[in-house]
Design a protein around this nucleic acid. Structure first.
Lengths: 353, 353
DNA sequence: CTGTTAGCGCATTCAC
DNA sequence: GTGAATGCGCTAACAG
């Protein structure tokens, strides 16, 4: 495969100037039908691709990117996504992209509403969305579609929208997997406790409910319905939660594994550790700071992660490819669900700082 | 953080010409100490990064890259590494890199010797090595060091060499991990069978022996020495191997898990499946075609993978960064060891085709 | 040693 | 509608 033809060479072949080829390539109009046809014929024949590098350097436009995600503390899931975004922006720093980060309270639809209003006001060239609220997001996306502003989703995707990219894990698969792992760990004879947070937003979250579905699908398929118990706990009252957990485990000595389908595994793990319940395996999601601590000290046996940093990184890259390199294909990726145990933890970069 | 300074602007600040800045940036020499210092001072201060795009288009040189790995069949480990290399070369195709792939028989030191001679004869600009034989590789690398030709390792690294990049997994950690997994799966009361291949090269391989070390380190640490049995099997005589495996399992009903520390897990898994031994958990390495088949049908419970495609990809990128972008830092990465089970398998791209 | 300069391929004016 | 001309930031060759 030899070198590609340049625009100039194509122009020569078509008997036109490079400017005309450029107009055809980018559908800018103002080209007579006959010349256009000539150029297109050649273009089709040789499968012409723009040279990204020269293309980029001759574009002068400054791009505005808005990132809109829930607020987060350091070392948490959304922080990892953000650091992936940052590292991508750093890698592509010669593209003159200006980014703004707008955050909202993931438990307060109104705060999300405000954030979205702010986005529309800013009228950026592209947006990366970490969506929690379906209605609000769908409405925003409609406006964006109308204005022709591209947007990408990280963490989860809202149906009925037209993102140019979507980076998320298969949540039901995550639910199935955590159940399979605990089943393998505890053996088929023993029981599993599913600890569900009472906290407002968390249970309603799209991702959480999908995991729950996957979890119970697996339970049913394997005919272990009787082997799974549930317990609701509140992060706000750790005393009561601790008592509840311990009492359930005392009453059900067959329980050898505990699943927490969000990133609060450490909360339960700490309770178990405090009470010396070392033989109970805990499984949870996300490499948050506290979860990693527990995985290291053995109070959590396994964590599932959906590569938040990678999600952030790819979302930026997808935007750039679409916006600047004019790539047409959309980027829909189901992220791998990584299984983390003590021995392979050190080699994963998607770690909280 | 505003726009980056250009080389010209830096030159102006330092009171030199852009040519001088370029010479400093790329260590081409021929710069007086005082000017060099002035330039470096500014460079450090502003954390200058080359504009990749303009840099690429103005490079005229054609680079020759040689890739040298063991031969492989489709859907195997080395094939995945190769496809990672190919996709990187594809992504960087505007750099005019010509690549040659030389392979050798991983069980025949002489064939490796020949391959290496061929490399030296070709005298390329850079080399990616998948090393098996220590002596031969060390000798080759010495020659390459003398000639100043950069080389990168994939899969494993030979000590006493000076690669510019090394992409490999932590093999002892892999050994530990597979043991921890099987222990978790079988419970502490039961036993584990370690199936070791008799085949010539395989056992001597550096990676294999490191995994073995890690495996037994974990066994010792957890005080389970008495709980681990060993069995040597030969791929050449499946009849005999099958009988041996089955007989060991009959004599030791406490064995509930089987570990294979290379990519031959499917060989044992097929034997177990044939004999209806469904409750015995099998764990092995690598997403080879056959292993994946077994993971899907349930005869293998878990596979460990060291991201061969990613290794291949990064090795090329590291070479390019070193050779073309003249990056100084070397790229030593311990790849994550991915744990694959039935539910998360579909989302991993490091799959055989 | 050092500065100057001609491209690299494309996007974008600006005349015609 | 169209083509010619300019510049993006950097590399490399060349003249001093």
């Amino acid at each position: 495969m030899g070198r590609q033809l340049t625009i100039k060479e194509i122009a020569a072949r078509a008997g036109v100037s490079s400017g005309t080829v450029d107009r055809v390539l980018h559908n800018r109009g103002k080209v007579s039908p006959d010349k256009e046809e000539k150029v297109r014929a050649i273009l089709d024949e040789i499968d012409f691709k723009l040279n990204i590098h020269t293309s980029v350097i001759s574009i002068k436009k400054n791009y505005e990117l808005v990132i809109c995600t829930p607020e987060y503390s350091q070392g948490e899931y959304w922080g990892a996504i953000d650091s992936g975004i940052k590292s991508a922006l750093d890698e592509f720093n010669d593209l003159s992209i200006v980014s703004t980060h707008i955050t909202y309270d993931q438990f307060d639809a109104n705060s999300c509403h405000k954030a979205y209003a702010q986005i529309l006001k800013q009228n950026p060239d592209a947006i990366i969305l970490g969506p929690i609220f379906e209605q609000e997001t769908r409405s925003l996306c409609q406006d964006l579609d109308n204005r022709g502003i591209p947007y990408a989703f990280v963490d989860s995707t809202i149906e009925g929208t037209n993102p140019i990219a979507s980076l998320m894990a298969d949540q039901p698969a995550g639910g199935r997997l955590i159940c399979r792992l605990l089943e393998s760990f505890t053996g088929t004879d023993n029981e599993i406790l599913l600890c569900r947070p009472k906290q407002a937003g968390s249970e309603q979250s799209y991702n959480y409910s999908k995991r729950l579905n996957g979890f119970y699908d697996y339970v049913k398929e394997t005919g272990r319905t009787g082997k799974v118990k549930e317990l609701f706990f509140s992060m706000d009252d750790s005393e009561a939660s601790a008592q509840a957990v311990i009492s359930v485990l005392k009453q059900n000595p067959g329980i050898k594994g505990v699943a927490i389908l969000n990133s609060r595994g450490y909360f339960i793990a700490d309770i178990l550790a405090e009470h010396g319940l070392k033989d109970i395996k805990v499984a949870s999601f996300d490499l948050s700071y506290n979860n990693v601590r527990c995985l290291k000290n053995g109070s959590i046996s396994v964590l599932l992660s959906q590569r938040p940093m990678t999600q952030g990184f790819i979302s930026v890259r997808a935007i750039i490819e679409q916006l600047i390199y004019r790539k047409k294909e959309k980027t829909f990726i189901k992220m791998p669900i990584d299984i983390l145990m003590k021995d392979n933890l050190p080699f994963y970069k998607d770690l909280p700082l």
